[in-house]
Write a protein that binds this DNA or RNA. Structure first.
Lengths: 111, 111
DNA sequence: CAGAATCCCTTGGGATACTG
DNA sequence: CAGTATCCCAAGGGATTCTG
């Protein structure tokens, strides 16, 4: 058994960190995901509103990206039983927590 | 001419911000880019060292990602005229500025 | 209105081999 | 050592059409 040196500990921590960063980037690096999150945070929170806001997106693509964001636990959908049916999306706590990071990224790209 | 209402101003600012976020994500969302930046920041700063650190990467892919990071202004290469030639990469100020954001992302993905 | 089904096409990343 | 050249494949995203 190899003794756990501090170097090993650092490497493990580093490895873990690396994995998490890639995971995080996987979650938000879809072509529209960051934008969708920002829009929802500003109450552009319905399918048709998002479609207008992201004017060059197709139904299909918007649907997919929304689904993936749901699966990642960043947004949840509220189905309001009216006729016609109405659906609103909102950010989860995790989704909210992403907002300041996106803001940092936006500022960073100005450097 | 439409008068510049505060609503318009907000929309413009929002649009600008959106574009920047997508630009930022384009820059760092390559499969290996965040990892390469972190490794270089910890002095894993040569082609062969990076290849070892990212053990499942091919020469070709590593070369491409490095080139794109250079083109984005996140890293620069120092060619040291020895025989055989030696090349070291280092982060630019912009590259350095990305590190805390990547750290935030890493922490965020734990939520 | 809010999507799902199907089909298609571009692109990112990988394998292998070669070079200054 | 530090790459480049060529070729290839899977997958993400788009267009169109259809539905509860």
């Amino acid at each position: 058994m190899i003794k756990e040196t501090s170097s090993n500990a650092v490497n493990k921590a580093f490895l873990l960190k690396s994995c998490r960063i890639n995971g995080a980037l996987d979650i938000i690096s879809g072509r529209w995901k960051a934008l969708i999150i920002i829009h929802i945070s500003e109450n552009t929170n319905r399918f048709s509103l998002l479609k207008i806001a992201l004017h060059s997106i197709s139904d299909q693509t918007l649907g997919k990206q929304i689904k993936e964001l749901e699966a990642s636990g960043l947004i949840i959908k509220n189905i309001i039983a009216e006729v016609p049916v109405k659906v609103e999306y909102q950010l989860t706590a995790k989704g909210e927590a992403l907002l300041p990071i996106l803001s940092d990224l936006s500022n960073w790209s100005d450097i």
